[in-house]
Design a protein around this nucleic acid. Sequence first.
DNA 1: CTGAATTGTTGCCTGTTGCAACAAATCAGC
DNA 2: GCTGATTTGTTGCAACAGGCAACAATTCAG
Lengths: 396, 396
Amino acid sequence: MSDPALTAISPSRLRQSNEAAVLRALHRFGRLSRAELARKLRLNRSSSGHIIAALLASGLVRETAEERPGRPAPPRAGRPGIMFELVPDAVFFLGVEIGVEHIATAEIDLEARLVAHQVEPFAGAAVAPEAAIGQALGLAFRAVGAERLGRCEGVGVSLPAQLDPGGFVRVAPLLRWREVDTPALVRRALPVPLPVVVENDANSFAIGATYGRRQARAGVTLFLVLETGVGGGIVIDGVLFRGAHGLAGEIGHMAVPGPDGTMRNLEELIGLESVLAAFAARSGVAAPRLEDFLADVRDREPGAVAVAEDWARGLAHALVQTARVIDPDHVVLGGSLAPLYPLVAARVSAHVRAMQEPSFPLPAVSTHDAPGIGAAFGAACMLHQRYLSLERQPAV
Amino acid sequence: MSDPALTAISPSRLRQSNEAAVLRALHRFGRLSRAELARKLRLNRSSSGHIIAALLASGLVRETAEERPGRPAPPRAGRPGIMFELVPDAVFFLGVEIGVEHIATAEIDLEARLVAHQVEPFAGAAVAPEAAIGQALGLAFRAVGAERLGRCEGVGVSLPAQLDPGGFVRVAPLLRWREVDTPALVRRALPVPLPVVVENDANSFAIGATYGRRQARAGVTLFLVLETGVGGGIVIDGVLFRGAHGLAGEIGHMAVPGPDGTMRNLEELIGLESVLAAFAARSGVAAPRLEDFLADVRDREPGAVAVAEDWARGLAHALVQTARVIDPDHVVLGGSLAPLYPLVAARVSAHVRAMQEPSFPLPAVSTHDAPGIGAAFGAACMLHQRYLSLERQPAV
DNA sequence: CTGAATTGTTGCCTGTTGCAACAAATCAGC
DNA sequence: GCTGATTTGTTGCAACAGGCAACAATTCAG
């Protein structure tokens, strides 16, 4: 309700905001001295000293004893600074992914590094929202001892659903949910009050992939999750762009001309099921597995190569159409079909170049090998990001 | 260079930021008392009193004498508040558009209302950058008396060019510019040092159209400029989204299936020249004017209607593809072809609905009647927005 | 060993907001 | 018309943040 741009800052919020800025800087640069912090944040050395003292007292930051082995500190005149770093296990964040076939959980520390994860089979469409959330949170908190509970600073939930900005589920066809006040259910299922974020699975994946790669934090990055469906998320300068209805980047149903020239849905063209079906038709294998297809492409079997070529053209078309709209500088491919990309990268590039005028700047395409818990990891990252943003509020 | 998210706040910046928040609130709500301001900005009444006192002293704000006639203030217990409002002519902002065929200027006041504008013919492609900028700024400042010069708080320049984030022109084919350090040229041509912003014409138009309509400030809005070319800009929560290379929303070269099913460039399909050419072919008129075409569509002449139907399908396709990527809640059409939209709105909607699954949320489409100075107005608005943002810096 | 450079600390200062109390101004009800 | 309730604006004081300048501590270069 209250527009953040229309909120004034009070001195206490100012301190909170500056402490968060120090935490962000430490997260980004690893270890810094008071003087370096003062320079980076445009503070006085005395002020950064005060802030460091407060963060030391709260246990979020500590002095680093040993020098980093990799960089032996170039000799410089002057008194050497005392380096500080985040205390990784001072706090932690949980993420859970409620999928159609499995539940995944992830725990990350203050440095946003994965410290624990679990995957468990799950009959998504057969479980009611309340039970599903209870099961997922139960799995996540089971691994957390009672003595560590107080150090949890937030829980993120990822769902294959269309969500409004507050996390309310409008409709989740794959789970057969409809009009579910997920945040309320999550809060009720929590052992202690905690900040909660509920987000779409593709968007969660996008944030998680951003957190995993430093260079993607600046600029505009499009993340695509290539499974049977094709999901997507957009991250702008490290912040998730949801769109008006949380559907930004969801290009799975984008219309793309198929090999025969007729318009098709993108995921009918480059989705996992369609690709395997096309491979089956061309190779004669009855129910091929993805690995078989990838192996055949690697071995340049003509049938597989033809299917891969169609895939490359479809992907290229989607990339070009998307680039025209959001002008990204990075595209990151994830999901189980992502390993196909390196095998046909040259073909994709050729198609892209053929469709664009030469002066048009092209995004760099890369793949992200998610270990199957990408969405849960990303959901946890959303709370890490929030914790390091101005609002380190007590609870929601 | 310095990441804004990594900059701490000092008490003096805090005050500046809170003063700007008061100005933004007054711009948005028109007139407010100290107590109302304190509630909206979550400040103490005493603090808002101090801030108002400072703004009164600087002449940016004044007491409003008479009650607003429209709303006769509902009777309420308690001492009535003293209302304040912006002083419109305390400062002003200039915008200039350097086009291919004309130069336009706009002057807006502190309330972002247009107070003066000019248009002058101009041989864009035949004038060197330095001379073009000199001519445009000369026209803009000629209307400003020497005694008002000190109240100018910024100049925006709009160009049909691809620009990097700093306003440096990479290439402007229509003007035949290449690698031009426009901000430097503008600063050199200014009579006094002033904040300067240089922006693409479609992006300028987008910001200007946002400023003109209140409800568009929140959410995601796509603006399309329909001329011979089709330009575009995206505004997210009132802030221009440029993309990685300033090309976000530039969907003119998006591939769209034409009436015969083959893929075509969007602007070859729905651009002004193509539409008039198709109309000429169908109607037999040699060199039809746009008004003739619109009149024929209105009169339901079969040839014109057929052309309009193709246009509607092309536009619908572009809208659907774009909606899949950025998920906007508003689409605003501008440019000389915009008046065609209301005549075929039902057809566009029908095509859009046919291409989307029913659950997909559709953006509301509307038209914006730019008086020919949309880009210049928008360029000025960018400086207004900047003035009301935290950074009210002395000059650049 | 000396000088230059850099860091961290320490008082003191300025400036901003928050708080509480109070006077002023209005409405509702008797 | 008067009283009480309510809201507003003002005022003095307190709390607290960061800036500044000076100083001691520590290191390197010559």
